[in-house]
Design a protein around this nucleic acid. Structure first.
Length: 134
DNA sequence: GCCAACGTTGGC
DNA sequence: GCCAACGTTGGC
């Protein structure tokens, strides 16, 4: 089981949109590194959903409900299907992640522009723990 | 609104 | 193959 983080601009497509839609094809990723990570995703993997822009916080957990397949709009690229699992009890802001030593190696901090990224299980668990203890 | 960091493109 | 120029992302 692998863990991931998916970024989205909430004005474009938010966690609430995902909940409303029940599932969503995660498309429009046009970055080779991100594409490669998408190709590694397996059905059942979990992904943190992170809001960029003015939000800058992890808001929920989604499941990869369908592994990567070529984007019908441009077959050079991949899409996956994601399904919401649960909203975090409290969102975990980037500022908290930045100030916590447990996350110094997190891709979110080291490569802030990557919109699809792997997350260590320990990081994933810590984010969930922080979200519940507030 | 600015700009640092990063990725891509294209001339050489 | 190098790298300057340019474009994009996303935090501040």
């Amino acid at each position: 089981m692998n863990y991931w983080l998916l970024k989205t601009e909430p004005f474009t497509y938010s966690w609430n949109d995902l909940v409303r839609d029940k599932k969503s094809v995660w498309d429009g990723i046009r970055n080779y590194q991100a594409r490669n990570y998408m190709a590694e995703m397996k059905k059942g993997d979990l992904a943190l959903i992170y809001h960029t822009g003015s939000a800058k916080e992890v808001v929920g957990i989604a499941r990869i409900s369908k592994a990567a397949w070529p984007d019908p709009a441009d077959k050079e690229w991949n899409v996956v299907e994601v399904t919401p699992v649960n909203k975090l009890k409290n969102p975990v802001p980037l500022s908290v992640i930045k100030s916590n030593m447990a996350f110094t190696d997190m891709v979110l901090l080291k490569n802030s522009r990557l919109s699809v990224q792997p997350v260590m299980r320990a990081e994933f668990d810590r984010i969930v723990a922080i979200s519940e203890n507030k």
